[in-house]
Design a protein around this nucleic acid. Structure first.
Length: 405
RNA sequence: GCGUCGGUGGUAGAGUGGUCAAUUACAACAGACUGUAAAUCUGUCGCCCAUUGGGCUACGCAGGUUCGAAUCCUGCCCGGCGCA
């Protein structure tokens, strides 16, 4: 009996969408579900004790960050990432593969994972700047065996290989761990993307082997393989087939493709994956993305946006995202989102949140993060219910009609 | 009253003859953020048109010197400090 199992509860006829139950040693996750990001063993701004009330069923922490600080041994002595942070429910750890991107080619470049350069330039987002990147130097360099990192904290040198990532993830002790992969830049050329994908496949085999060899941890943790291939459909499909052929307990769809590409190929990717295993869409997304993902058969999502947006004043509402520090909310005595039933909305006005942000009070980002987390967790829960009821499309259309940018 | 230092854009505070509509910070007004180098970053920020660009009004007030003044001179007003 594997530590991780997935059961389909209901499928949406004519699509890949499904509702199910993901069982872990620390409890079940009713899917589709939104997993909160707890990079450094904390969901930024939110106490673990509050997470369940916000509808959060699981968290995902980060191998690279916890390895650097406090060190995986400390977390291990603390009882593993879940116990350490007092979240004794389902946990995951990302392998550090994303940092290959963010500290590698992405370093010094404000490039979004999604926006191609042109779009970024048009929308005013700062973009890749080779000069800047060069002057800072990249912090991650890739070779066949693994990745050498320069710590962003103190400049010290570190080495990650698939085996090392798995070893650290064993110490961190999450219920679900990920194969070490290479997350590529969104604008990577086909040739490089192919090369990186093939390398990620080799790393996947090594990760899997490293995990299965550890009898003890293999019995306690499940391991997901990660599909790569960037924005190229044929590579994505090839990658899905390749990763699916390996004996993973579940699958992660790795990042850096544009939204448009995501729309077009996610279902094709998932169609290549075995139905009886869980699929996680790494690092996504916005409310619209959750509908797209769920429709394509994604079971779990994670994304930094609810907490990052929340910290910086962006709040989700059923009428679209709002910037609470903006002047228009100064005297708005209505709740943040009248259609939201979270504790923050039940209690506080836009005017109050606006004031907290203007005054630089930390409670502002805290409350905003909580609301956003609830918003996405609740939306995912309702998507699940709609799949079970067979009203998915209806629910989606109704929601998106009211949700403006 | 005498002496002295100083009065710059919403605020603080640079600038001390041309490259100044005026560094910078804060405030203000927006925007961005998708496996968290992020409680962060970006843009705008005298007025009026405009696509690069142009016009106008501005550095306490009023004069003056100069081709040219926020910058020099004179007077006045206001404030800090010192002495009476």
């Amino acid at each position: 009996m594997r530590p991780i199992s997935y059961t389909i509860e209901k499928e949406l006829p004519g699509s890949l969408a499904r509702a199910g139950i993901l069982k872990t040693p620390h409890g079940e996750i009713q899917t589709p579900a939104f997993i909160a990001v707890a990079t450094k063993a904390d969901v930024k701004g939110v106490e673990a004790a509050r997470l369940a009330d916000l509808g959060v069923q699981g968290i995902i922490a980060n191998t690279y960050h916890l390895y650097l600080s406090p060190g995986e041994k400390i977390v291990e002595k603390g009882g593993g990432v879940g116990k350490f942070m007092t979240w004794e429910r389902p946990t995951m750890t990302d392998s550090g593969g994303f940092q290959v991107f963010s500290l590698g080619v992405g370093f010094g470049k404000k490039l979004s994972k999604f926006l191609p350069e042109e779009a970024a330039r048009e929308s005013g987002v700062a973009i890749f700047d080779e000069d800047l990147a060069t002057s800072h130097g990249k912090l991650a360099v890739i070779d066949e065996e693994g990745v050498s990192f320069t710590s962003h904290v103190d400049g010290s040198l570190h080495r990650f290989t698939p085996e090392r990532s798995i070893e650290i993830q064993h110490a961190l002790g999450a219920d679900i761990i990920y194969a070490f992969d290479e997350c590529t830049a969104p604008n990577a050329e086909y040739e490089y993307q192919k090369e990186a994908m093939d390398r990620t496949h080799r790393w996947a085999e090594r990760s899997l082997r490293a995990h299965r060899q550890n009898i003890d941890m293999n019995a306690k943790q499940g391991i997901y393989g990660i599909v790569q291939g960037g924005r190229f459909a044929d590579l994505r499909i090839e990658s899905a087939r390749e990763i699916a052929s390996m004996d993973f307990d579940g699958f992660g769809i790795g990042g850096s493709f544009s939204k448009h590409d995501l729309l077009g190929i996610l279902d094709k990717v998932n169609a290549e994956l075995p139905k009886d295993k869980p699929r996680h869409l790494l690092g996504i997304g916005e409310p619209e993305d959750l509908f797209i993902g769920a429709a394509a058969g994604i079971d779990t999502f994670d994304c930094v946006l609810p907490t990052r947006n929340g910290r910086t004043g962006g709040l989700y509402t059923h009428r679209g995202k709002i910037q609470i520090p903006n002047a228009e909310f100064k005297e708005d005595q209505t709740s943040i989102d009248p259609e939201c039933s979270c504790l923050v909305c039940a209690r506080y006005t836009k005017s109050y949140l606006h004031h907290l942000f203007r005054a630089g009070e930390m409670l502002g980002p805290i409350l905003a993060s909580q609301h956003n987390l609830y918003f996405l967790a609740d939306l995912t829960r309702r998507i699940r219910n709609a799949i079970i009821d067979g009203t998915f499309e209806k629910f989606r259309d109704a929601f998106l009609a009211g949700y403006k940018h």
